Simulated assay, not measured.
Amino acid sequence: MNGEMLSSIHNAFKILREFSQDDPELGVIELSRRTGLSKSSVSRIVQTLCKEHVLQKNIDTRKYRLWLTAFELGSVVYHELEVCRVGLPVLKKMMESTPGVIQLVVYDRGSIVFLLKLPEDDEAQIFNSMGVRVPCHCTASGKILLAFQDELEINRVLKEKMKSYTKKTITTGEQLSIELQKIKQTGYALSREEFKIGVSSVAVPVYDDLNRVIAAINVTRPTQLLSSAEIDNVLKEMKYCSRLITERVGIKLSNSQRRQILAAKVTNRWRI
């Protein structure tokens, strides 16, 4: 792929990112001003995007808006994140009996992204919020999600430089590799002030019907409120909620297929 084509793709994404709920329609002049691209370049790109049905021109306003292809691509992401929709009521129920900040987290290329956070009050601002991206090596949810990636991805992350956030942060591939092996054996992960001093967390995986880890449930508390005895109690509730989410979010399989997979692969998923 030559440099000119790469530049065009990059500029197309710059244009697409300008559309939002606040600005659903934008004209060529406005897009040019926002992106720093010339009006001729913007005009050429939006015409191409219109041909692919990524954008549509409003004849009345002469402005452009996202159209069907953008919707179709977004729908793919939406369905992948159905775990978020299914997980919300489960985690709300969990919050009634589990003190602390409860989060639903997904993995993305060596980092984690927080999808849900309960409760969402001002007092919990010291904890990570929805949409925040954090390296996976320094949190419980990050380590549990990394532990269940394929070997190529794990090895890639182990070779990367790891930032130190506190004196307790794991910063070498050798240390992290040992931790990941332990996590795979126990089925849960802990972070004791590895990301923030005074804050600890515990995380368990969420599976789909094919035994793939698709997310993690994370409970974060001040360190003094997460003793070993408390961890045992929290884990029981977390694994129960993980099982509920898995049962409700699974891919579309027949009952017989689901029973076969569950019997063959997930007998010990939620062992306490």
Rank of each mutant, 00 (worst) to 15 (best):
K57E: 12
R44M: 08
Y240Q: 10
I102E: 05
L104G: 04
F71Q: 09
T98Q: 09
K117A: 14
V157G: 03
L225A: 06
E4D: 12
R258A: 07
L226G: 02
E4W: 10
S227A: 11
V105K: 01
A12I: 06
S41T: 10
K265I: 09
F19V: 02
F148E: 07
T172A: 13
I126M: 14
G187R: 02
W270N: 15
K167S: 13
Y64A: 01
K93Y: 12
S41P: 02
I217F: 13
K14S: 12
I126W: 12
K14W: 12
M5H: 05
R85G: 14
A263V: 08
L146E: 04
Q257L: 13
A147H: 01
I126K: 05
L253G: 09
T61M: 09
A264W: 07
E82W: 13
E193G: 07
T48Y: 12
A124P: 03
P24G: 06
Q257M: 15
Q260P: 06
C50A: 15
R258C: 06
Y240I: 07
R271C: 09
I144A: 07
L6W: 03
A215W: 01
V106F: 04
E247W: 03
L37G: 08
V46P: 03
F71R: 12
L235G: 07
Q260L: 15
S191E: 04
V86C: 10
S254L: 11
L190E: 09
I126R: 11
S242R: 00
E120P: 03
I15S: 01
V42R: 00
T98E: 12
A140R: 00
